[in-house]
C-alpha cells in the first residue's frame, strides 16, 4: 500500500496534488519518468508523471487533472488513505543537455510534468524561458514553482484574465523571433503540442514533447501505447514518453486517445451519480 502523506487542490479543485510514500520509486526516479497507479482492487492502471520526488523522505508527488472516473476516484482519496498499487519509475528519463537558450512551454496539467524538467534544465546551466498557460486565471497551476525553476516566466490565459491574453504559442513565437533558441520542450494537451511543433518546425528549432497515450502495463508488454514517430511505431512507455515532436504523428495520437471515450463517459457518469446519492 502506498500512503498519501499530503494532498492539495489547485485550479478550483480540478487539479489535485498527492504526495505518496513510495521509497523504492523515489530512490530511482529521474525527471521525465512516470508511475502507474491503481487506487483499489477493481481500479484502472493510470499513468501519471512524477512532478517531484524526495529521496530523503521516500516520497513521490503527482499532480493530475480530474478528467474521468479514475482521476475522480483518486481525487476522493484523503491524506492517510492509500493507493493499492504504484509502479515505477517507468519510461526513459528526459535527455538533459546544456544547450544555451531553451524554452519550456506547458499547458494544463502539462505544467506539472514540465516543472521537474524545467528545473533540471536550469540546474545544468541552460537559460530557460518558461511559458505556461491555462484557460483562465483560476485554472493556472504552479506559477510560483515555475518562476523559481526558470529565468523568465511568461504566463498566458485564453480569456485574458491574467498575463498575456491568448495562447502560449503566440508568446513562444515572440521569444523565437528574438533568435538563438536551441531547444523547445513542450508538454500539454495534444493540440497544443501539435501547434507548438508546427511553429518550431518553421524556425527549425528541435522540439521535445511528452506523449500521453493510453497505457496498460507500462513495461512494453501490451503495445497499447503505440505512437508513430518518424513513420515508425514506438511504444511510448518504454521508448518514450518523450519524443522528437517534429516526427510525431499527432493526428493519430489524438484519434487513439478517443478509443474508449464512450465507455469512459458511461463509467464516470455512474460514479458521479453514485456519489450524489450518498
Amino acid at each position: 500500500m502506498f500512503k498519501i502523506v499530503k494532498r492539495e487542490e489547485m485550479a478550483e479543485g480540478t487539479v489535485i496534488l498527492n504526495e505518496i510514500e513510495a521509497p523504492a520509486i523515489a530512490r530511482k526516479a529521474k525527471p521525465g519518468q512516470f508511475v502507474i497507479l491503481k487506487a483499489n482492487e477493481d481500479g484502472e492502471r493510470i499513468p501519471l508523471t512524477m512532478a517531484e520526488t524526495d529521496k530523503a523522505k521516500g516520497t513521490i508527488t503527482i499532480i493530475y487533472m480530474v478528467v474521468g472516473k479514475s482521476t475522480a476516484l483518486f481525487r476522493d482519496l484523503k491524506v492517510g488513505d492509500s493507493y493499492q498499487d504504484v509502479i515505477g519509475p517507468l519510461g526513459k528519463p528526459t535527455h538533459l543537455e546544456k544547450k544555451g537558450k531553451v524554452i519550456c512551454i506547458g499547458g494544463g496539467t502539462g505544467v506539472a510534468v514540465l516543472h521537474p524538467i524545467t528545473r533540471a534544465m536550469k540546474e545544468i546551466g541552460n537559460e530557460v524561458t518558461c511559458i505556461i498557460g491555462a484557460r483562465t486565471k483560476d485554472l493556472l497551476i504552479l506559477e510560483k514553482q515555475m518562476k523559481e525553476a526558470s529565468h523568465d516566466l511568461r504566463v498566458c490565459t485564453d480569456d485574458g484574465s491574467y498575463g498575456h491574453h491568448g495562447f502560449v504559442t503566440e508568446v513562444m513565437k515572440e521569444v523565437l523571433e528574438q533568435g538563438d533558441i536551441k531547444e523547445v520542450v513542450a508538454i500539454g494537451p495534444v493540440p497544443m503540442m501539435a501547434a507548438v511543433c508546427r511553429i518550431t518546425r518553421e524556425y527549425d528549432v528541435p522540439t521535445l514533447v511528452s506523449l500521453n497515450p493510453i497505457m496498460v502495463d507500462g513495461t512494453g508488454m501490451c503495445g497499447g501505447c503505440r505512437v508513430s514517430v518518424g513513420g515508425e511505431t514506438k511504444f511510448a512507455c518504454v521508448d518514450g514518453p518523450e519524443f522528437d515532436g517534429h516526427k510525431v504523428d499527432f493526428d493519430e495520437l489524438w484519434l487513439r486517445l478517443q478509443a474508449y471515450l464512450e465507455d469512459e463517459k458511461k463509467c464516470h457518469k455512474e460514479y458521479c451519480n453514485l456519489h450524489k446519492v450518498q
Binding site: E44, K69, V216, D217, M221, C222, G223, K266
Partner: peptide
Amino acid sequence: ILSANEYLTRANLMKAYKFPDVDTP
C-alpha cells in the same frame, strides 16, 4: 487493433469483462 497481450490483460488481469463494475474498459 490490439495485441493479444493487451486484449487478454484487459480481460483477465484487469477483469474488464465486468466493465463498468470495474474501471478498465
